[in-house]
């Protein structure tokens, strides 16, 4: 079964005058697949993810979401438009993940509250349920957003640089959540820049530089021949802990 299919897709920014940020995207993502999208800054990773939820300008082609609508896709942007000064607590903020079940009117109820608490527990924030979101650190906020994404219970999950502004410990915990999603048969597409992380956890990869450079099994995609085709000077691996690893692929499977 196909989760997402791209047919000659070109996507641009709404204010970009129709100039595509990413083009010639042809391919598909299977149900239950874990796909990493890699590429230098400005390669169009974010635009591609935004396009999947209809938040970018579709310049050409079409994107299919067989049997699903945009509401079935959970999307976690790199820089969410969240007003952190708004007086709302962690619990209420995360509970918004149940929107599809509750809508504007239905009560959260005991079962709903238990789900929210379970999600907070899963990301290690059970103790912070009552804290206002403005009082959280960057890492804690990312955990909160993962908890909300868990509650969205979406078959397809898009993550844009989910571990960029986050400490190593948080990254470790959230990668576990991501692997849970894979075990539950969800489709995950994540824009990432850490090659070691991708090799360890993502069976499939898409290398992007304004257009797809390579798309397939991670071991076949992350090879020097492809990585060299990235524009010179663009580092696609800027991870703090692991030095850039552009050598031959040694292990692709987790």
């Amino acid at each position: 079964m196909t989760a997402l299919a791209f047919h000659g897709v070109a996507l641009g920014h709404p204010g970009g005058g129709g100039r595509p940020a990413v083009e010639d995207v042809d391919g598909s993502v299977a149900d239950g697949e874990l796909l990493a999208v890699l590429g230098p800054n400005g390669a169009g990773k974010s635009t591609l993810l935004r396009g999947i939820v209809g938040d970018a300008l579709l310049v050409a082609g079409r994107i299919e979401r067989p049997g699903r609508t945009i509401a079935d896709i959970a999307y976690l942007p790199q820089r969410p438009e969240i007003d952190r000064t708004f007086p709302i607590g962690v619990f209420d903020f995360v509970a918004a993940g149940l929107w599809r079940r509750l809508g504007a009117f239905r009560r959260l109820g005991a079962a709903g509250a238990a789900r929210v608490e379970a999600a907070l527990g899963r990301v290690g924030l059970a103790d912070l349920a009552g804290r206002p979101i403005g009082a959280l650190s960057g890492g804690q906020m990312q955990r909160v957003l993962f908890a909300r994404t868990i509650l969205q219970d979406a078959p397809v999950i898009l993550l844009d640089e989910p571990f960029t502004a986050v400490d190593a410990h948080t990254t470790q915990d959230l990668v576990q959540v991501l692997l849970d999603w894979r075990r539950e048969g969800r489709t995950v597409v994540a824009a990432l820049h850490d090659l070691a992380q991708v090799r360890a956890h993502f069976p499939r990869a898409l290398l992007l530089a304004g257009r797809p450079i390579a798309w397939g099994a991670t071991a076949d995609v992350l090879v020097p021949a492809h990585l060299d085709r990235m524009r010179p000077g663009d580092a696609i691996c800027q991870h703090d802990h692991a030095p850039p690893d552009l050598g031959p692929v040694r292990s692709a499977a987790p």
Binding site: P80, F93, A96, G103, A104
Partner: peptide, 23 residues
Amino acid sequence: AVAYRPLVLECVDPLFLRLVSRA
């Protein structure tokens, strides 16, 4: 009474509200 929940979401995280509902 009717619009409180979407209004709060619209204030905190407008993109999220746009994606999950037409409200």
